[in-house]
């Protein structure tokens, strides 16, 4: 975990109620896709946790959905202003668990935490199919970016406004197979359905209301097959086998 001040380079709306913020500053503490940062928000007591979508040596980007007091304030932030972050939080996804061909299933804003994971998998020479599920076209994020990485990208929307009409599990039914590992991030019901559908091993990124974000307050503990675990510190990424739905 590292703490530092970052400068906002960009903070703009990219889809319905969804914003992307790019910041400059020290990213050395960020090691794996699926890790998160905790953002200090003036006007809120607690920090707000967000997965890092992508990062370079000295910039990082976050994609966030405006859902409450904290994200509402964040969406008003101007370029050039300074933000305090804790970075390098959580364990992140483990790319070594996939040998050759990965299936990455994301729902809604869950497309964000998996982005750097897919980048890493492709850099490691693995074949990746990304299944993105949204309610409708207005929520579509990262579609072009995932394609540019070289992943096969398939989309499902509830209303059929883009991709196939239905759920991510409907898309999975149409895939050829041959995957040796999966990764999933999105609404809990979606991830549960994905875990039940796929008989290969996988990793799941859980979400919980957090206190500290760094393992000291036990405010986000979940039950797992391996005992109580802190989502912020022991997770947010867990083995499919350990998750208790």
């Amino acid at each position: 975990m590292r703490q530092g001040d970052y400068t906002i380079l960009e903070n703009s709306r990219i889809a319905s109620r969804i914003w992307r913020m790019t910041l400059s500053g020290d990213t050395e503490g960020i090691l794996r896709g699926g890790q998160f940062v905790d953002v200090e928000v003036d006007g809120c007591f607690l920090r707000r946790p967000f997965a890092v979508t992508d990062w370079t040596k000295d910039t990082l980007s976050l994609i966030y959905k405006v859902v409450g007091q904290g994200t509402e304030i964040m969406s008003q932030w101007r370029e050039g202003s300074s933000v305090n972050l804790l970075t390098g939080l959580g364990n992140g996804f483990d790319t070594s668990l996939c040998r050759k061909k990965a299936l990455v299933v994301c729902g809604g804003i869950g497309a964000s935490p998996a982005f750097h994971l897919v980048k890493e998998l492709i850099e490691e020479g693995k074949e990746v199919t990304v299944v993105l599920g949204y309610n409708n076209a207005s929520e579509l994020i990262l579609f072009d970016e995932y394609r540019k990485l070289g992943a096969g990208v398939r989309v499902a929307t509830m209303d059929g406004s883009v991709g196939i009409k239905g759920l991510v599990t409907d898309v999975i039914d149409t895939l050829d197979g041959g995957y040796d590992f999966f990764y999933t991030c999105g609404p809990k019901v979606m991830m549960e359905a994905v875990c039940r559908k796929l008989d290969i091993s996988g990793q799941v990124s859980l979400e919980e209301r957090m206190g500290c974000g760094c393992g000291i307050c036990f405010g986000c503990t979940c039950h797992t097959a391996d005992g109580p675990k802190r989502v912020c510190f022991d997770g947010p990424v867990f083995k499919k086998e350990d998750v208790i739905w």
């Binding site: 607690l46 209301r209 036990f218 405010g219 503990t221 109580p228």
Partner: peptide
Amino acid sequence: FGNECPRIAECP
């Protein structure tokens, strides 16, 4: 184990 989540609420 303690209580179920959510265990945390933001306040003024």
